[in-house]
Computed example of a mutant assay.
Amino acid sequence: MNETVNAQLSAAATLADLPYFSYQVSPETISEEVADEFQRHPELPGVLVVAGDRVIGMISKVKFFERMSQQFGRDLYLPRPIKLIPEIAAPQVLPLVLMARTPVEEAVEQALSRPPAFVYEPVVVRKGKQLVLVDMRVILIAQAQVLSKKNLFIQQQHLHTQQLLEKLKVEKERNQDYAKRLESELTRTQQMNEALEQQERSVREQAERIAQLNQRFISISQVLSQRGQKAFQETFMGVNQITRHTAEVYRLSERLKQDVEIIDQATHQIAEITRQVKHLAVQAGLIASRSGQQMAGFDFISEAINKLANQVVFANQQVEEMANHFRHHIREVVQSTASGEKIARSLLNQVEDTQQAIQELQALLDTEEATTEYEAMPTAAVA
C-alpha cells in the first residue's frame, strides 16, 4: 500500500504514478472482517471482491458503512459473506476499471462521468495481472498537481513564447532590413543585368559590324590584290617598254652623233672649198687684170673653180641627205618620247587608282574606329 502522493508528478502522469491500495477479499469473506479492517486502516478507500483474477465487485468504505448504518443493516450483513451486500450482489453502477497507463486527467474525466452518487467512488486500476484501488481523492489531488504543472509549464511556455515573440520581432525587423537590402541588391543586380544585356547587345552589334568589316576588308583586299597585281604587271611591262625605248633613244643618239660628225666634216670641207674659192677668185682677179699677158693661167683657174663647184654641190647634197636623216631620226625620237609619255601616264593612272583604293580603306578604318569609340562611351559609363 502506498499512501503518499508524489509531489514531483509530471504533466504526463498516469494512474501507475499514484498511491494505491491492494486490499482484496474473496466473495465468501464475512462482512464483519471487512468492517474490522476498515476500522484498523481508516485510509482504505474500499475493498475489492475478487475470485481468482476476476473482479466480482467493489464497495467503498463510505458505501459499506452507509449500508451498515441502515436499519437492521449490521445484524443483516455483518455476520454474512460480503457477496450478499447489494453493492456486490446487484450493483447499480459497475466499478470503473482503468489501465495503469491511463493519464490522470483522462481518469478524472471518466470518473466524473459516473452518476453523482458514485462520482467519488474509488477507481479499480489494473497493473499487469494485479488489481488495486486508487482513492478518488488521491486522483483529484494528482490532477491538481498535474494542472499546476501544466499551468506552470504553460506560463513557462507563455514566457518562452513571449521571448520567442520578442526574438521573432527582432528577427522580423532584421529580416525586413535584410529584405530591403536584398531588394536593393536585386534592383542593383537587375540594373547590372540590364547593363550586361545592353553590353551584350552592343558586343553582338560590334561583332556583326566587325564581321561585315572583315567581309569588306576581304573584298577590298581582293580588289587591291587584283589591282595591285594588274598595276605591277603593267608597271613591269611599262618599265620594259621604257627600257626598250630608252635603248632605242640611245641607238638613235649614236646615229645622230655619227650624222653630226659627218655634217661637221661636210662643213669643214665647205669651209675649205670656200677658202680656196676665195683664193682662186683673188687669183682670177689678178689674172683678169693681166688678161692681156697670159691666158693659159686663167683656164687653169677656171678648171679648178669648176672642180670646187662640183665639190660644193656634192657637199651640199651630203648636207641635205644628213638633214633628211636628222628629220627622220627626230620623228622616231618624238614617237618614242610620246610612247614613253603614254606609258608613264598609264602607270600614273594605275598608281592613282591604287592610292584611291588605299584612301577608301583608310577612310573606312577611320569611320569604324570613330563608331567603336562612340559606342564604347555608354559601356564605360555603365561600368
Rank of each mutant, 00 (worst) to 15 (best):
V50D: 01
S339N: 11
P95R: 01
E197L: 02
V104S: 02
V333P: 03
D135W: 01
E205W: 02
I82R: 03
K307C: 06
F326R: 15
E166Q: 14
L347H: 06
E171D: 08
A13E: 01
K61N: 08
Q265C: 07
V25R: 03
G285K: 12
G228L: 09
A16R: 13
D259H: 11
F72H: 07
R216C: 14
T267W: 07
E185P: 00
R67H: 04
T235N: 03
K167F: 04
H328E: 11
A284H: 03
M68C: 00
F72K: 05
N6Q: 06
L131D: 02
Y120R: 06
M295I: 07
S253N: 10
A284E: 07
A12R: 10
V49E: 05
I270S: 10
Q318V: 12
Q311T: 08
S302I: 15
L196N: 12
E32P: 00
E320P: 01
A117F: 02
I139Y: 02
N324I: 04
E254F: 06
R290M: 04
L164H: 05
Q317G: 09
G340N: 13
A142E: 04
L15M: 12
I88F: 02
E303W: 05
Q190C: 04
T161F: 06
I301P: 01
Q226L: 14
Q233E: 15
S339V: 12
F64Q: 03
H160A: 11
A309C: 01
S346R: 08
N349A: 14
E373F: 03
L168Q: 14
L256S: 09
D353Q: 13
T274G: 13
Y20N: 15
Q212M: 06
Q355F: 00
G238I: 07
V134F: 03
E183I: 07
G285H: 09
Q293E: 11
F326L: 15
Q155D: 09
P103F: 01
G340E: 10
E185I: 06
V223H: 09
E321L: 08
R40E: 15
E66F: 03
A376W: 03
E33L: 13
Q155L: 12
V47K: 01
F298D: 07
Q8T: 08
V62G: 00
V351A: 13
I242F: 08
R188D: 15
P45R: 03
A296T: 12
T29L: 08
Q156G: 14
L256F: 04
T371P: 00
A266R: 08
R290W: 00
Q145M: 11
V47D: 02
A107Y: 01
V50I: 10
A35T: 04
Q283R: 12
E352R: 14
L186N: 11
D177Y: 11
R80M: 08
V50Q: 05
P86H: 05
E183Y: 07
A344R: 15
A89G: 02
A16H: 12
V97N: 02
R67I: 09
H158R: 09
H279E: 15
R275Y: 14
L164S: 04
Q222N: 09
I141W: 02
L286V: 13
T235H: 02
P378L: 09
M1A: 11
E171K: 10
Q157I: 05
N310L: 12
S10L: 07
